[in-house]
Design a protein around this nucleic acid. Structure first.
Length: 838
DNA sequence: CGGATCGAC
DNA sequence: CTATGTCGATCCG
């Protein structure tokens, strides 16, 4: 709300702390001088973990500066001249595009939260107050500022500066209400005005000014609010009036911009207790400020300028309760900027200030003088921005709210948490809240980020992007818990000591992607009805569908042969039994009961299941998932993978390998079991004890219990998945046509090694297994997207029109790993080939 | 893409 | 007695 930047000073290393307390202290009385303030702050600060971290951050900035200076040394005169030429070309262009025709206003409520609290509690009026908590203050009133008490200062330090300080807790609801009242006024001047937080807004009053020229006086007349409903308000009002505020003087404000200036029409008041405002921009802004004060009893400062950047800097100039205008003339703009410290510019903060200072740049005109050098030392975006600043260029229209949030973040700060249990449960909570929000907005994101701050104030973020986007608590938590687990592991055997945790979801599906997502391979698999991944669920395969294509000429490749073999098999469907059924929230209860019954039936049966291995497509009869896992492991990696696998063992020395597929199932098992229990009211152990899947159920119960597990190494899974993906699916053309053992033989060759491939950037060509076209791509993700889209556009849409096409299958809800996704993709691609004979 | 950093409030 | 926030955007490797 009230930032500290105006008093910033970080010229020396202890600027970290100094900046907190600098205070212009003009009033002098009752306050503290700068030295005292800084001494107190330093005493309260030094030696703390926070301070140590601040010093560390400062060192990092210093290193950056050093790097920059080294770079600067290497710049030749010639380079600089060239740069100058280039930049000045741009300057000419920019000058030509300068637009002074808009009138932009920036409104900024003075000490907003504090002012609201003082208004509502007159007892606070004469006291130094701050709004916030002992941990952090949001703002302070001007009285408190004399003691060095400022926004973004922790309350306990503020108390040391000013022992009498009253700290009022935040009450956002109230501020929101007041903010709304203010906005109601603003919208009359610009229905498209842009609020920036609760206490600030930009308005484009260009149109209003035009219309206003023709307005009769009565439309510009506003009345003093003499009616106050509460006693409190009455006291306030009468006090103001009696003390020479409103009634005795037409000067509403104490500052140098009195409401009543020498516009003759304003003096000609025909109605008591009212003011008439003129038609100029200044008058409009005075009117706005007057109306805000009459309505809310709060004051605002304002800036008027030809663009937003200037308006913002302008509103700062005569704060509090003042306004300022930059005339729409080039020279006026340049004059304003001439000696303006760059730190005043929105977008230039502590760090940039310090970096530029190292180059001898403090004011905006210096920024302009050094434009050539800056273009060589900073990124394009940065120096272009510097150039805009030094020319006084900014947006002349208020951009249509790019309303769509790019990410949602839930985070919490707390006193130290160091047990894994607490951390996981907190993480889950955050995921729950986040999921709620996402579902409310109907959003699904592809990237989950975990944010941690340890007790030393070091912040870490860990992100993971999943191919199937997430939105539910479980989906998000599944990713977040892995990230958290990795972090816990990374400090083991020490506990992870954190003071903040946050979970963010970003990378939302665009509208376009949403459309496809609806019929993407993931949702396709989710919504399937009959066939199930691994055939855990007995598919009543439609013979026609499969036989129809059985004569399609085999291509002779490994996979085609496998495919052909599979097709033959499917003509004589093996005796499969119902496997695990997957449930969705959306399912109707009737449907649910029916399917629950299936599950129960299965669990009470002793029939062994026959699975189809997704790698070799051989049918595997097995009575538990673990065994199947082992098969898939072998099949998939053979003896090849073990070299780069680190298989973590848990206490039971369980042979944990690549069993992530059943892990998905296991969650379903759990889920099903829970639902079965809910419905039947049975005891879980009773209902599973005799089931042939009991052993795996047990195991999976352990895995998926609330205590998160960290037995797998996703990176290895991904590596393997990539190998598989490349060889089997993405690069069919590279696979030796006749050699079924190709995998083994070529595993170590350069040509097909995944690392080799995935490190190649820019011009890799992959062959889409669906449309068979070559796709130039530099990432697997974008290629996958193509495949998804391709599948959607073509095959699936076509196939789903066939009534016999299987629809229910496999729950992807919790499968967030690349490996899982790719497995499904491989399986499905092959399945689709089979169905379509493509 | 992931992570850190920056800036705003 | 303790005690330094939350959010989005952008940059960089």
């Amino acid at each position: 709300v009230d930032d500290m930047k105006k008093v910033g000073n970080s010229s020396c290393n202890d600027g970290v702390i100094l900046r907190m307390g600098l205070n212009d202290n003009k009033a002098g009385m009752q306050g503290l001088d700068k030295e005292k303030i800084n001494k107190i702050i330093m005493e309260a600060t030094k030696g703390s973990r926070f301070y140590e971290n601040e010093l560390k951050k400062d060192q990092q900035v210093n290193q950056r500066i050093e790097k920059m200076m080294q770079l600067k040394e290497k710049i030749t005169t010639q380079q600089l001249l060239n740069a100058q030429l280039q930049v000045d070309k741009l300057v000419i262009e920019l000058e030509q595009s300068r637009n002074l025709s808009s009138t932009i206003v920036h409104i900024d409520m003075d000490a907003f939260y504090a002012a609201v609290e003082m208004r509502d509690n007159p007892e606070l009026k004469e006291k130094p107050i701050a709004v916030g908590s002992m941990s952090m203050l949001s703002t302070s009133n001007y009285h408190a500022r004399r003691f060095g008490v400022r926004a973004a200062m922790p309350g306990f330090i503020a108390k040391k500066l000013c022992p009498h300080l009253t700290i009022v807790p935040l009450n956002f609801e109230k501020y929101g209400k007041v903010s709304k009242e203010v906005r109601e006024i603003l919208t009359e001047y610009d229905p498209n005005f842009m609020p920036m937080g609760l206490d600030e807004a930009y308005l484009n009053i260009t149109e209003h000014l035009e219309e206003r020229l023709n307005w009769p006086e009565h439309k510009r007349r506003f009345f003093f609010n003499t009616e106050r409903t509460t006693e409190k308000d009455n006291i306030n009002m009468s006090a103001k009036f009696n003390e020479g505020g409103y009634s005795s003087s037409p000067v509403l404000f104490e500052d140098n911009t009195p409401l009543m200036d020498d516009h003759p029409e304003q003096r000609d008041q025909s109605v008591a207790n009212s003011v008439v405002f003129g038609t100029s921009a200044e008058e409009v802004v005075k009117e706005i400020r007057f109306r805000i004060e009459q309505k809310t009893q709060l004051t605002a400062s304002a800036g008027i300028a030809p663009n937003t950047m200037l308006a913002k800097m302008c509103s700062d100039r005569n704060k509090p309760n003042g306004q300022c205008r930059i005339a729409p003339e080039r020279q006026a703009v340049l004059d304003f900027l001439k000696d303006l410290p760059i730190r005043k510019v929105p977008g230039i903060g502590k760090v940039t200030e310090k970096m530029l200072k190292a180059l001898g740049i403090v004011t905006c005109s210096e920024l302009y003088q050094q434009r050539a050098l800056l273009s060589l030392l900073f990124s394009e975006a940065s120096w272009r921005n510097f150039l805009d600043i030094s020319l006084g260029l900014g947006s002349t229209h208020l951009e249509k709210f790019h309303n769509e949030k790019k990410s949602y973040l839930y985070l919490r700060t707390f006193s130290e948490i160091n047990t894994a249990e607490d951390q996981y449960s907190l993480c889950r909570e955050l995921c729950r809240d986040l999921a709620q929000e996402l579902q409310k907005e109907g959003l699904k994101g592809k990237t989950v980020t975990l944010k941690l701050k340890n007790v030393n104030f070091e912040v870490k973020t860990r992100a993971s992007t999943v191919l199937s986007s997430v939105s539910t608590e479980e989906e998000i938590f599944a990713v977040a818990k892995d990230l958290l687990g990795t972090e816990i592991d990374s400090v083991a055997p020490h506990p992870l000591r954190i003071r903040l945790m946050g979970v963010r979801v970003s990378g939302f599906l665009s509208e376009e992607e949403k459309k496809y997502q609806q019929k993407s391979i993931t949702s396709f698999l989710k919504s399937g009805k009959e066939i199930s991944f691994l055939r855990l669920h007995a598919g009543k395969s439609n013979p026609e569908c499969f036989t129809k294509n059985s004569e399609a000429s085999p291509r002779g490749s490994f996979f085609d042969k496998k495919r052909a073999a599979r097709q033959l098999n499917s003509e004589n469907p093996p005796n499969e039994t119902v496997g695990k059924q997957v449930f969705h929230d959306k399912k109707s209860s009737a449907h649910f009961v029916e399917e629950t019954k299936k599950v129960t039936d299965l669990q009470n049966s002793n029939v062994c299941k026959i699975f189809t291995c997704p790698v070799c497509f051989e049918e595997q009869s097995s009575n538990n998932l673990e065994e199947l896992n082992r098969h898939i492991d072998k099949c998939l990696s053979g003896s090849l993978v073990k070299d780069n696998m680190e298989i973590p063992k848990n206490d039971n020395s369980r042979e944990s390998t690549l069993n992530f597929l059943p892990q998905i199932k296991s969650e379903n098992v759990d889920e099903c079991q829970n639902k079965v229990d809910q419905l039947a009211g049975t005891d879980q152990s009773a209902s599973t004890s005799d089931s042939c899947t009991s052993s795996s159920t047990e195991k999976f119960t352990q895995i998926t219990s609330d205590k998160p597990h960290r037995e797998r190494q996703p990176s290895n899974l991904s590596d393997i998945a990539r190998n598989v993906c490349m060889k089997q699916c993405l690069l069919p053309k590279r696979i030796s046509e006749d050699n079924e053992d190709h995998f083994e033989k070529t595993e170590h060759t350069e040509e097909t090694s995944s690392s080799c491939f995935f490190e190649a950037r820019g011009d890799s060509v992959l062959v889409c297994p669906v449309c068979n076209s070559e796709q130039k791509t530099n990432s697997l993700v974008s290629f996958n997207r193509h495949v998804d889209v391709c599948l959607n556009k073509g095959l699936i849409q076509e196939l789903t029109e066939k009534k016999d096409f299987p629809t229910k299958t496999y729950n992807m809800e919790n499968s967030n790993r690349v490996g899982e996704y790719i497995f499904v993709t491989i399986f499905m691609t092959n399945y689709i080939y089979k169905c379509a004979g493509s």
